[in-house]
């Protein structure tokens, strides 16, 4: 299965969930009327797009349908796809890791799949011929270091680790030094899961950011916020508060292989201008894809 096939496969549940409802809709409503818009809005809300963003999207759709004089249900659907991909396309979704070394800092709340995502990222860049170094800066959760260690072995990457309970900024400091001396192409830093409303933990994240800034000045840096696709509107708050602690450049949307739709990224993209750059579609090493807004929007409604 090719890359696109895999993405589509992973997204198919997402797509089915939304598009089944949408398709049912279009079968049921040939006419473009008020009820159609209401049902469409409902479908968006059920996909976790959020009440406000859903209403914004349907309002936009309403205007477009009016000005473009769209009368066919299928064309309305195309227009809806277009609006969503426009929102997702407002920012550059390309990953920028050109310097040597460059850095990825992976952050997020507890249980979204940070460590697993790092395992996949490491494997992905390793297979592209990069020398990847991992930093086990989740020194808080029991056995988190062991978990990353196993991923390091699986992907064949080096890992820098301290004892459980060590200062995460110190781990990152050592890792940054090691990245330089070992001539690594990419340093990927794991961090402890933390709830975004815990001030001191967010300050710790800020400290890690500063260490990277100081030790690897000028290095390309992707700060990846990992979001669980099953998370609802709280993801907005996560994006907002994590952005205050670290300059987020990317979102990785994980667990899209379930029935959750992850629609909240549309709201995040619209309100906070943070692009989605990766999607996780399974538990295998290769089940991480770079995000493509058009494909995403298409896959949602194809």
């Amino acid at each position: 299965m090719g890359l696109f096939g895999k993405l589509k496969d992973g997204l198919s549940k997402t797509r089915n969930a939304i598009s089944q409802q949408v398709d049912n809709l279009f079968k049921a409503f040939v006419k473009v009327d008020e009820e159609l818009f209401e049902e469409l809005e409902e479908a968006l809300i059920m996909a976790d797009v959020g009440a406000l963003t859903s209403s914004y999207i349907t309002e936009t759709l309403r205007d477009r349908v009016k000005t473009k004089r769209i009368e066919d249900g299928n064309e309305v659907k195309e227009e809806l796809k277009l609006i969503i991909s426009e929102i997702l396309n407002q920012q550059d979704t390309k990953v920028k890791l050109n310097t040597k070394p460059s850095v990825m800092l992976v952050i997020g709340v507890n249980g979204v799949g940070k460590t697993t995502t790092i395992g996949k990222l490491a494997s992905k860049y390793k297979s592209e011929g990069k020398k990847v170094l991992l930093a086990a800066a989740d020194t808080f959760r029991a056995a988190a270091i062991d978990q990353l260690d196993i991923w390091a072995t699986r992907s064949g990457c080096d890992i820098i680790k301290h004892e459980e309970g060590a200062d995460p900024a110190a781990v990152v400091f050592d890792a940054a030094r090691a990245a330089k001396s070992r001539n690594a192409d990419l340093l990927i830093c794991d961090t402890a899961g933390r709830l975004h409303n815990k001030k001191n933990l967010m300050q710790e994240l800020n400290k890690i950011s500063r260490v990277l800034e100081r030790e690897l000045p000028g290095a390309d840096r992707e700060v990846v916020l990992v979001l669980d696709a099953s998370t609802g509107q709280n993801a907005l708050s996560q994006a907002k508060l994590f952005a205050e602690a670290a300059d987020i450049t990317a979102i990785a949307l994980t667990k899209l292989d379930g029935t959750a739709k992850g629609g909240v990224v549309i709201a995040i993209s619209k309100e906070q201008s943070i692009p989605v750059k990766f999607v996780g579609v399974g538990e295998g090493l290769e089940d991480l894809q770079e995000f493509d807004p058009e494909q995403f929007a298409n896959a949602l409604f194809d």
Partner: peptide, 11 residues
Amino acid sequence: DSMTGQDAVNV
């Protein structure tokens, strides 16, 4: 997870 969205019912 108390942050779960619409999908909570399916799960």
